[in-house]
Amino acid sequence: MTSVNERRAVMGLLSRARPDRLAELLPALPEATELRAPQVGTVMVQGRIGGTGAAFNMGEMTVTRCVLQVGSFAGHAHVQGRDKAHARRAAVVDALWQADPGSVAGLLATLQAEEAARRQARAAKAAATRVEFFTLVRGEDA
């Protein structure tokens, strides 16, 4: 049995993956039955007033969703953007992972490492622009 949190993490990683990179890592798809064909739509993104208060509607984002059956497992995907192949691949990986996490462990580890590297690179550039304040000693205080 696999926990919900682990599956959430896998699905999140797949939704944020670059579609072309996922296609490179998973060029051939196993046979799958479409339970819900890939469909492009939107999700209304909500924010909170003051960051922590009541919810408000910011605007929508494009999302593609898809449900596929591989073997006896239904794989779900909701991925950012309008790439149907991305949604199909994400759903397949979700199904394969439910059947046997080990079967897609290598793929997920690669995506994880590449995402971490992208985030690190961004954070390192931000860190370089962090202001280090210092106070000048005035003459009469010296």
Partner: peptide, 22 residues
């Protein structure tokens, strides 16, 4: 946008957890 179906609403963003670039 008006041609697309709406799947739902997001959970309100947690901007405190933002990975800040500025």
């Amino acid at each position: 946008r008006t041609t697309l179906p709406r799947f739902g609403s997001s959970v309100p963003l947690d901007t405190e957890a933002m990975e800040v670039t500025r």
